[in-house]
Design a protein around this nucleic acid. Structure first.
Lengths: 252, 252
DNA sequence: TGTACATCAGTGAACGCGCGTTCACTGATGTAC
DNA sequence: TGTACATCAGTGAACGCGCGTTCACTGATGTAC
């Protein structure tokens, strides 16, 4: 039997010319992939064009990546990570006791990141890429950094009794819906269960997260039409403040 | 100079075998396009595969459509129209004086339609299709049917003084942000200007529309992960009630 | 320090694929007289 | 009613394209002794 060449060797040492080259080419591969993604979008991203820009023959990429899908996965993880880092940095730069400021910082940083990286935003929050399934095990962790930030804010609010109630009445109905919605989440995430958040507070957190993604997507994808919103930033601020009222109550 | 065959003739009479055939094939073309869209998604929709299913040679489609882009436009308009009709029907089936019920009916019908037609939803509210620009003049009118419905509800609420105030304080800040955001909208849409809605009421309507699209997209695109929400319907109801509180105030 | 061998990066040619679009054509349908 | 001509629907072959992936290969880098 002929020996098939192992396409993706485990790099032996971490030093040496090869290891250094490999690391730098892997970095370049991600960078070029990211740039192409930004130019043509995920559906049109091709191994061949990336290889061209790297000055390589297409087949050479198979040394670094098992195929097109793995490149996409790489870029998705990078995008989530980059977004998560931006949000975490913004969040950390704000006085921890000021819950509203923490929420606003996260929201603003998400919008800013998305406007700066529209194709990466649409890769992770747009319609699914045709013929591609993101492997959940790789994607879940970096993909939940921002929502976990929101949940941390919510848990702090709950601990300090600053979380708002459901915004609608009767409270019994709100509690029942929130309970049904958040059952799984409480069961599967022990940290959340230990945080002392009520189902309503949890549901409010999820609502706000959905609002944030929806608001940013509406702007990035231009769903409202070109001439509907005169001042996109003001409208976003309005949405952020509305969401803050859901989380913490109306007080300014 | 050789006579180029005119690819897309103006049909002379509305009767006759030809006209009937043309109409029925045009209908079949849309139907097959819709089905393929639902199966493979917009980016992978191809003239050739549609032609195959129609039992025609690919070039024959150019009698009916000037190219792939026009087929996409056709399907986009169809999707908006179908969604708009569903929402309008649900809206019309509800007691007109019950503003909350009208809002809930519209929201529910949008969600139901989207879950039944995920690829059409993602065609009109997902990330833009690569290498395709929807012609705004054709798309705008059917694309605003649902938001216009919401605005009509908002206008009725304003007329009957049932619209809620901004959900956050101070009111001056809310008014200022809302004013900056809705300037263009009021200027460009005389009906809205005549409706007597305040900028805050208008902004609340836009917020709710964005929330609705965001909530439905989150569910259709599975952005929250598989195991986060135990009862998607309950969570949607929770969001609908939260949005109703934004539009009309908390009262149940 | 030198030599023989193993590992690895990248090449170049080729595979089969589906795509949108063009063009000259045939035969059926419609129309003018 | 019949005939000559114009219009139109659909065919079939071909164009050039870019894609992902495979495979046997060359030459450089690393390793064991």
């Amino acid at each position: 039997m002929p020996e098939r060449p192992a396409p993706r060797p485990t790099p032996g040492r971490a030093d040496g010319i090869r290891a250094r080259n490999r690391a730098s080419i892997e970095a370049e591969l991600r960078a070029v992939g990211r740039r192409h993604l930004a130019e043509v979008g995920a559906a049109a991203l091709s191994l061949r064009s990336v290889a061209r820009e790297l000055g390589m023959v297409p087949s050479a990429l198979f040394r670094y990546v098992s195929g097109r899908d793995e490149l996409l996965t790489l870029l998705i993880v990078d995008a989530y990570t980059s977004l998560g880092e931006a949000a975490e940095a913004a969040h950390a730069a704000v006085e921890p006791t000021d819950l509203r400021a923490r929420w606003a910082a996260v929201a603003q940083s998400v919008r800013t990141w998305a406007l700066a990286h529209p194709h990466e935003w649409s890769l992770i929050f747009g319609s699914p890429v045709p013929r591609y399934d993101a492997p959940a095990d790789v994607t879940n962790d970096p993909g939940t950094r921002v929502p976990r930030l929101l949940m941390a804010i919510g848990a702090d609010a709950a601990a300090r009794s600053l979380a708002g109630p459901a915004t609608f009445t009767p409270a019994s109905r709100a509690a029942e819906l929130a309970g049904r919605a958040s059952e799984d989440l409480l069961r599967s995430d022990p940290d959340l269960a230990a945080s002392g958040m009520t189902p309503v507070e949890l549901a409010n957190g999820l609502v706000v997260w959905t609002m944030l993604v929806g608001a940013v997507s509406a702007e990035v994808f231009q769903q409202l039409g070109e001439r509907t919103i005169s001042d996109a930033e003001a409208f976003f601020d309005y949405q952020v403040a509305t969401a803050a009222a859901i989380l913490f109550g109306p007080g300014g």
